[in-house]
Nucleic acid binder design. Structure first.
Length: 844
RNA sequence: GCCGCGGUGAUGGAACGGUAGACAUGGCGGACUCAAAAUCCGCUUCCCGCAAGGGAGUGGGGGUUCGAAUCCCCCCCGCGGUACCA
């Protein structure tokens, strides 16, 4: 350093003023609307001006799942939006126009429960929470296009939720059906599964009853095959696809008719094993099957069956679902005929048969099904083997030739499968069939704080959709949120009583509201055209942005939300409302940040961590970078603040380098920040070269870690290495050090945008987000020498320097030389040479 | 039970068949300071050894391979989901 060098120790003691730097850049982004993107001439409601390729730069839609506003944001939100923002920035820096909007999933149960408890109207509490989220997102410096913001609880939004409901109703995709709900007789209300603890109401402890109500359903099962098959067209984590496939649960088999003489009825069962039909020795119905009580009526079993069914209905789903539970059941006292053997086999009712799956009745094949076997053993029912195997033990669920199966004896069971189905079809006793585990989507909620269902019940005209020009059906203000035997909306009589839109006679509004999953199944479409007052969106606007190129959210939504959104988009595509069949082309599922106790954060456990104090103390940049540094973002990680100090230190060290350079006259004023070291043609010193190499290595490493790999933790570690190298090379030329520091700022921008903007501006006079992503110079990535690892029998015994690209023979000779004493007196069996890496000598 | 994810130093983690432990925290030591904080530098998987060096080591046990944290099989443990897939 020359004698004009600045007072380095004084500067070195300083920390950067994160609050001032964050405020400065946030003000710039706010004032300049930096992250807003236009829909362009084709995106307006009525314009359809085609663009030419030249003025049509690449576009991307980057979206994090919208938050449910309850209280303040927690640390998981910070993680979600830190990931999404990093991805959005990385794409922008590659010249892509990125749509990155924000909204709030504002209807829902917690706000309503809070209202019952405290009297605070859901709207008030929700709006307060939304304000808190807005402040947080701005303080974190998330690059959001605020011009497209909305809450799903606003009439401007839910008007279109209702409109879309009516479209689905028109298509026959919304229908009414009697369905069971959890009912608390004490509180006179429907309970969510979450509110039922061990079969009892979580609030008052009363035993929960099942109640049948007429409710709205969406016919998602109509899309079961497409939902399954189109998984192959999207870039999602394999384990999420697996979960969706299992949830849809397509199984192929046969439907077989069993004739019951007692009431002259054919009962169908679905089976995946028609090949074992000759082994069906009994027949079991689900307790909820409508015919169970009818069949037992008047017989000696009537009372026993009645008691059993009543008992089962009080069991919780979990109790009933435990597979190791002893099988229970009661005979009905009637029988059906096995269609292939002609035998009469006894009918039973048992809780291991589910009404929701298949036909609600099964054939019992105890020799070849584990549950049927356990049941037969418990009640001493006959067991007949029909598939031979080398082992005698039953049940046997594998393959083999058929026995005890009449004309099909000797056929391999896989071949018999088709033969038996064919025979059944010819005889009119069955047919090949596909069954799904997926059930239709029950969307009715007997709640206040949700989107009203736009239907009017007229005693004369029946179900009448609210006419389009009278939408939205606005949620009325009410006083009392505590339900009294019906939806809280039913008490708003002025609102409920309405003239029928067809006949004008007195009619009543539907008082159920919609499941909040309905609101969140189309919000990504609304962002494309968020202020449209004529339609939910203009087709041109969704064509411009959809599908979402990168969707980011918690893995807990792997099934329901993602499946419902896919269903909506497919249904809308079939109506011509959108041009894509999948909403989310790529998905990234983030792991949960667990409480310090290693469990999921929840208010009841008192282990929730708020990001606000971290941001206040260390700054948004350090908090954001730290949460990405903790570990791989798709993995769960218990919260700890171990390394937060280290991340903050790293940002400070980068900033201090820039301060020293600027103070020494190497900032923006120096040649306009054009480092031009190599262009200047100077001969690099060893320090220069080492720092240049490290810089290009970091550019290469960060680029690869971000590009589709989402390995933010290793990218940040690489930047720490670069900054460490800067401290190790104080003698490197200022231009090289300025280049290295500006590169570090440029690369850290997706994780710590404020400090990166500040450092970059000081060194170059330019705005980092307007700069292209840096490119590594291959000349600095290559090296002339490498460390050759010398192994004997796979164990490292020596390391020597070797020339890059050296021949195998050269490397082998080097290794033999280096390993001399380890090879003495041993017979060399084999030599493995991996160029530019290692030599392994196998000896005896 | 079933499905999914995971198990590597004191801690968070790195290593996508080729040097186990990058980076960071914590700890220890040093520099600076009257001192502390801050900052800077060094060491830090475990065991034996003054050292040179050697041995062990990625939940456990097998296997494939010249070579396994990584691939295969069996088992144990933790977390999350769950609706007995007939």
């Amino acid at each position: 350093m020359s004698d004009t060098a600045p007072d380095i120790p004084a500067i070195a003691e300083r920390h950067f003023d994160n609050a001032a730097i964050e405020a400065k850049w946030q003000a710039v982004w706010e004032a300049e609307k930096t992250w807003e993107v236009a829909n362009g001439p084709d995106g307006g409601p009525d314009a359809a001006v085609p663009q030419t390729a030249a003025d049509d730069p690449p576009r991307a839609y980057v979206l994090e799942m919208l938050p449910y506003p309850s209280g303040e944001p927690h640390i998981g939100h910070l993680k979600n939006y830190a990931i999404g923002d990093a991805i959005a920035h990385f794409k922008r820096r590659h010249g892509v126009t990125v749509l990155h909007p924000m909204g709030y999933d504002a209807f829902g149960l917690p706000a309503e429960n809070n209202a019952i408890k405290t009297g605070t109207p859901p709207r008030v509490a929700t709006d307060q929470s939304i304000a808190s989220f807005q402040r947080a997102f701005r303080s974190w410096g998330i690059s959001i296009d605020w011009s497209r913001e909305f809450g799903t609880h606003t009439p401007e939004y839910y008007r279109w939720t209702q409109w879309l409901f009516l479209k689905l109703y028109e298509q026959g995709l919304a229908y009414r059906k009697e369905s069971a709900v959890n009912w608390c007789p004490q509180d006179q209300t429907v309970l969510a599964n979450e509110q039922v603890v061990n079969g009892h109401c979580e609030r008052c402890g009363t035993a929960v009853e099942l109640r049948q109500l007429e409710q709205w359903q969406f016919r998602i099962t109509a899309y079961a095959d497409q939902l399954l098959e189109d998984l192959d067209t999207i870039d999602w984590p394999e384990h999420v696809k697996t979960q969706q496939r299992n949830w849809i649960g397509r199984s192929t088999g046969a439907e077989v008719q069993f004739h019951c003489a007692a009431n002259a009825t054919d009962y169908a069962v679905f089976t995946t094993r028609p090949d074992t039909l000759f082994g069906a020795t009994f027949f079991v119905m689900a307790p909820e099957h409508p015919d169970v009580l009818r069949l037992a009526a008047g017989g000696p079993q009537e009372q026993a069956v009645r008691d059993y069914v009543n008992h089962v209905l009080t069991e919780s789903r979990e109790e009933r679902g435990a597979a190791d539970k002893t099988k229970t059941g009661v005979p009905l006292g009637t029988s059906v005929r096995n269609p292939v053997t002609g035998e009469d086999i006894p009918m039973w009712v048992a809780d291991y048969v589910l009404m929701e799956y298949g036909t609600g009745a099964v054939m019992g094949v105890p020799a070849h099904d584990e549950r049927d076997h356990a049941f037969a053993r418990a009640y001493d029912l006959p067991i007949r083997r029909v598939v031979a195997s080398e082992v005698d033990e039953l049940p046997y669920t594998g393959d083999g030739p058929l026995v005890n199966s009449g004309e099909f004896d000797g056929l391999h069971n896989r071949d018999a499968y088709g033969e038996i189905v064919g025979w059944l079809a010819r005889e009119g006793l069955g047919r090949a069939s596909t069954n799904y585990r997926l059930r239709d989507w029950l969307l009715s909620r007997q709640r206040y704080w949700g989107c009203p269902i736009p239907i009017i019940h007229c005693p004369d005209c029946g179900l009448m959709p609210v006419p389009e020009d009278r939408l939205p059906v606005e949620l009325p203000e009410i006083e009392e949120y505590q339900p009294k035997g019906q939806s809280p909306l039913a008490a708003a009589t002025d609102w409920v009583n309405v003239a029928c839109p067809a006949c004008g006679g007195p009619a009543r509004r539907e008082t159920d509201t919609m499941d909040t999953f309905v609101d969140s199944s189309w919000y990504f479409l609304r962002y494309c055209d968020a202020t449209n007052t004529e339609r939910p969106w203009a087709r041109a606007a969704v064509d411009r942005w959809m599908p979402v190129d990168q969707y980011i959210g918690g893995v807990e939504h792997a099934i329901l939300h993602l499946l419902y959104a896919r269903f909506f988009v497919k249904a809308f595509a079939d109506m011509g409302l959108v041009g894509v069949r999948e909403p989310f082309q790529a998905l990234f599922t983030q792991g949960m940040i667990l409480g310090p106790d290693g469990h999921k954060m929840s208010k009841s456990k008192g282990n929730v961590i708020s990001p606000a104090p971290l941001v206040a103390r260390y700054g948004a940049d350090a908090a954001r970078a730290y949460i990405l540094f903790i570990g791989p973002p798709d993995q769960d990680a218990p919260w700890n603040e171990n390394s937060l100090e280290g991340v903050h230190r790293f940002l400070t060290r980068m900033w201090r380098q820039s301060e020293e350079l600027v103070a020494a006259g190497h900032g923006a004023g120096d040649g306009g920040g054009d480092f031009g070291f190599t262009a200047a043609g100077g001969e690099p010193s060893p320090d220069d070269l080492a720092l240049l190499r490290k810089t290009h290595w970091a550019i290469d490493k960060v680029t690869h870690d971000l590009d589709g790999r989402f390995s933010f933790n290793t990218a940040i570690a690489a930047l720490m290495e670069l900054v460490n190298e800067l401290y190790r090379r104080p003698a490197a030329a200022p231009a090289v050090r300025a280049f290295a520091t500006a590169s570090a700022a440029s690369l850290v921008f997706p994780f710590a945008p404020h400090i990166a903007s500040e450092v970059y501006e000081r060194l170059t006079g330019r705005r980092v987000w307007e700069e292209p992503w840096p490119a590594a110079d291959p000349a600095f990535l290559a090296s002339d020498a490498f460390e050759l690892v010398c192994q004997v029998n796979g164990k490292v015994r020596a390391r020597v320097s070797a020339a890059s690209g050296a021949d195998r023979d050269v490397l082998e000779a080097l290794a033999r030389d280096a390993l001399g004493s380890h090879l003495e007196g041993r017979e060399i069996v084999k030599v493995v040479v991996v160029p530019d890496k290692l030599v392994n000598i196998v000896v005896r």
